[in-house]
Structure formats: C-alpha cells, structure tokens
Amino acid sequence: MIPTPLVDAAFFVFAAGAIVTGYRVFRTDSMVRAAFYLLASFSAVGGILVLLGSEFLGMVLLLMMAGEMLIMAIVMVMYMMNPAGLNPMTMVHQNRVAAVAGLAAFLALAAVGLLGDFPDRPAPQPALATEELGIELLGDSMLVFQTAGVTLLSTMIGAVAIAGRRGRSGSAEDGSIEPALQPDEEDAA
C-alpha cells in the first residue's frame, strides 16, 4: 500500500489542481483552453476518486471525460464567433449575482461538510469495491443500470433527431426565422 503522507500530499495536489483549473475554465479567452482546463479539473477529481479507493469510478470518469472534452472543444470552435479569443471578451451576464450565488453555494455546502456528523464506516479494500460494484450493477441494481442504458440510447436517438438537418418535423431550414444579428460592438460593450 502507498504510505499515508504520500496519499495526503497527492490529495492536496489533486484538490488544488481541480479547483484552480475549474476556476480557470471561466477565466480564459480561448474556448479550447477552457475545455482543456475542465478536463484537467475532471482528471484531478478522477485522481481523488482513485485515492479514495473507488478505482473503477475514477478511471471511468477519466475515460469518459477525455472523449467528452474533445467533443466539447470541437463544438465550441464550431459555433463560437470568436473561438480563439483573439478579441478580448467578457461573455458574462449578472456577474455579481452569479459570484454571490456561487460563494453562497460553496459556504453552505462546506458548512454541511464541516458541521455534519457522518458515520465513520470506511469502505473495504479496492479489489472488493470493484467486484461489489459489478455484482451490484448486474444484481440488485440491474433495473437502475438498464434504465441508464435505455436513457442513453434514447438520448442518442433524440440528439440525432434534434441536431440533424431533417429535424423532428421536416427540414430544419424550412420556416425558420433568422434573428437580426445585433451589431457586434453592442455585445462587447
């Protein structure tokens, strides 16, 4: 087993990394950089999950997020007017309200974490954890697992139907109204 001080050090590195990169997501001009910062944040959380003994979840999180963030970067480059962030932009609204809400959420949840009284019943060794999860997935929670699968399938079908050129009801181009684009200066102001 890895000695505890090493685990502690790793946790602090991962936690600081997750929070800093998570914050950087909203503080960078380039969309691709934002996606990569978010991926870094997820990777750090994946690392913490592994430290906590939930190896399977940590690795699955990494596996999932790598693909997801690549798609996210591509989607942003596709649709953003200024994906490289060449022109400085502040694409935020209600900044103050949002900051207060974010801080309030943090304080409330942290208070719960600090003040809450959680039972001290540690989980078993990782090997057992993975095995137990497998048995749970295909045993008692089979219904949940299958529901998740069906949900994903219907999501796939729904997403294709929404995004496709031939939309849910006929061609997406028919009968659509294109809004007048506001002058760009107004957006930046």
């Binding site: 998570g22 974010g102 959420a105 949840l109």
Partner: peptide, 10 residues
C-alpha cells in the same frame, strides 16, 4: 463544495 460553487458561478 468549492467545485460545486465554481460550477454555480459559471
């Protein structure tokens, strides 16, 4: 909680 708070802000 910090991650969640940043998420709320974003």
């Amino acid at each position: 909680a910090a991650l969640f708070g940043i998420g709320v802000y974003g």
